Amino acid sequence: MPLWRFNPVADPRDSRWQDRQIRDGLVVRAPSAALARIYADREVPSSVHGAVGNETCSFRGGFADANLYWVQRVPAEEAKQLGGDSGPDGVVREGTARETELSVYYGEAGARRRERT
């Protein structure tokens, strides 16, 4: 199975993040980029606390949203370092998480306050 890398593309102040953590370096093994998005949403812990106001449930981790993450195939040389194309489907590397700069719950100041605690 090929490996896929998730690249966050939305601005950290974009309200589409909805208090989700931004994942840098997430790599998933899956037959396609679409399935990689599904595996990532299922397996990576989500920081979303729930809906605000009259909202419907959205993507848990935001990995299925093409406006938040672009998914690109990992080059062959790097894929070898991560175990190659063989192995079970799913998350190979969770990467690092960082907070958004805008909180839909608390505004910009609330996001900074959460980072300090």
Rank of each mutant, 00 (worst) to 15 (best):
V91Y: 03
E55C: 10
A64N: 09
V74P: 08
R60E: 07
Q72H: 09
A34V: 14
Q72K: 14
A66Q: 09
A76M: 12
V71W: 00
C57V: 15
G62T: 00
Y69A: 05
I22N: 01
R73G: 07
G84S: 02
V92W: 01
R42I: 10
D41P: 01
D41H: 05
S58P: 01
A40P: 00
S86V: 10
G90A: 02
S86Q: 14
P31R: 15
G50N: 02
S46Y: 01
V71E: 05
V28R: 02
Q81N: 12
G83F: 10
R93P: 07
K80R: 15
L82D: 00
I22L: 14
P45K: 03
V44T: 11
V52W: 06
P88S: 14
V91M: 03
G62D: 02
V44Q: 03
V28M: 11
N54K: 13
R37C: 04
K80W: 14
P45L: 00
V52F: 10
S32R: 15
L68T: 04
A33Y: 04
P75E: 09
V91E: 02
K80D: 09
E78C: 05
I38W: 14
D65H: 04
A30R: 01
V74F: 10
G87V: 03
S58N: 07
R37N: 06
A51Q: 14
S58W: 12
R73N: 10
G84L: 08
F63H: 06
L35A: 03
N54R: 12
L68Y: 02
G84W: 04
S46H: 07
G83L: 13
L82V: 00
G90L: 02
S46Q: 04
N54W: 11
L68G: 04
F63N: 01
H49C: 08
S32H: 08
Y39W: 15
G25V: 12
Y39K: 09
